[in-house]
Design a protein around this nucleic acid. Structure first.
Length: 361
DNA sequence: CACTCGTGGTC
DNA sequence: TGACCAAGAGT
């Protein structure tokens, strides 16, 4: 049998990870959690950065990362700290289950692993808040384990390199296989960060800078000229508007009434002003039925306009009511009075900061 | 698999 | 200006 392959039908050369590593050595970004070339960031710091970077931009994470590392220099310190302190420091960063899992993970690392992150993918994957991506990222970046983390950047790079036609998320297994096929025999941590830097700076969602890409000559989508069409994605449907009421109670001594949200679910365990449920059929005419009970007669003033906010899966419009109460007014069960000057330090999600700004302006 | 879960920046 | 996107995990 003739096994010769004619040049015209020869497959394109495979992407060479060594070329990517050489590109990385010249163009790697300087980031707060990234050690200088040839050095390793401590596993705790790698883990902290990876949790914060989940679905969150590098720019946004920067200040939070520095603050956390300063306030909790070790995993033991974080594990010892009350969850509420962690939530206050996390306020504004979003996806608050990450903060709850971060704290739970710190405790688990102390209890299960003596305060040292395990250099083992399965053990990492078993910790709270660590999924496939983060286990591979910490394993590779902190320990150079043979693992390829696949995030949105890597999905984009790989789907273009190989022109993966299947839509996300169905294409994830294939993209993971293809990504793993590129893994170099060493420097897996640098390779992981190189793929992400490439996706963030060259292989961008729109107008990728292909001429500067180390994979330029081997990228199938680039050869076809339809790079921007990858990765293919299923259209996502939009959430319906929900409405609700928020109640800002201002006591004569300059304090505001706050309470805690339920531990799970939307904005779980975070602080809020009292309010109604948020629903599609909210009726502003009966909104005051949800007002906090303060004893005696309370005169509610409905503010003009609404506070709007957009969550990932639905937009929200809140009608804000304000009331002034005497200094002697007691807080309802589960609520507490907080000085206006102390509001910045509270575990208030941004939607609640918008409400307070609207009411206290 | 489909859905929940925040926020800020970009074009 | 609204839709998309950002180092995803849990259920």
């Amino acid at each position: 049998m003739n096994v010769a392959v004619r040049p015209s039908r020869r497959k394109k050369a495979m992407p060479d990870p060594a070329g990517l590593l050489a590109w990385y050595d010249r163009h790697r970004r300087v980031l707060p959690w990234r050690a200088r070339a040839g050095h390793k960031t401590a596993p705790y710091a790698v883990w902290l950065s990876e949790i914060m970077l989940q679905q969150t931009t590098v720019k946004t994470v920067g200040a939070y990362y520095v603050k956390f590392l300063s306030q909790w220099p070790t995993v033991e310190a974080l594990a010892r700290s009350p969850l509420d302190d962690v939530l206050r420091a996390w306020a504004g960063l979003g996806y608050y289950a990450r903060a709850r899992n971060l704290h739970a993970c710190a405790i688990a690392v102390v209890e299960r692993h003596g305060g040292e992150f395990p250099a083992d993918l399965e053990a990492l994957r078993a910790l709270p808040g660590i999924g496939d991506y983060t286990a591979a990222a910490v394993g590779a970046i902190a320990f150079d384990l043979p693992a390829v983390p696949v995030d949105g950047n890597v999905e984009r790079v790989v789907s273009r390199l190989f022109a993966v036609e299947d839509q996300l998320p169905a294409a994830k297994p294939e993209i993971k296989r293809l990504a793993a096929s590129l893994m170099p025999p060493a420097r897996t941590g640098d390779f992981a960060q190189a793929m992400m830097d490439l996706g963030a700076t060259i292989c961008t969602p729109r107008k990728p800078a292909c001429a500067l890409c180390p994979f330029d000559s081997v990228c199938i989508a680039r050869a076809r000229g339809d790079q921007e069409s990858f990765p293919r994605k299923a259209p996502k449907r939009e959430g319906k508007l929900r409405r609700g009421a928020a109640f800002v109670v201002l006591r004569e001594d300059g304090r505001v009434l706050l309470r805690q949200r339920p531990e799970k679910g939307l904005l779980g365990a975070m602080t809020e002003v009292p309010g109604s449920d948020w629903s599609h059929d909210f009726d502003a005419a009966t909104a005051l039925e949800a007002a906090p009970k303060l004893g005696g007669k309370v005169k509610w003033r409905k503010l003009a306009g609404e506070v709007t906010h957009v969550f990932t899966h639905f937009p929200l419009a809140l009608t804000v009511f304000v009331a002034q109460v005497p200094k002697a007014a007691a807080a309802p069960k589960g609520a507490r009075w907080v000085e206006v000057a102390d509001l910045p330090g509270e575990a208030l999600p941004n939607v609640m900061r918008k409400v307070l700004a609207h009411a206290l302006d």
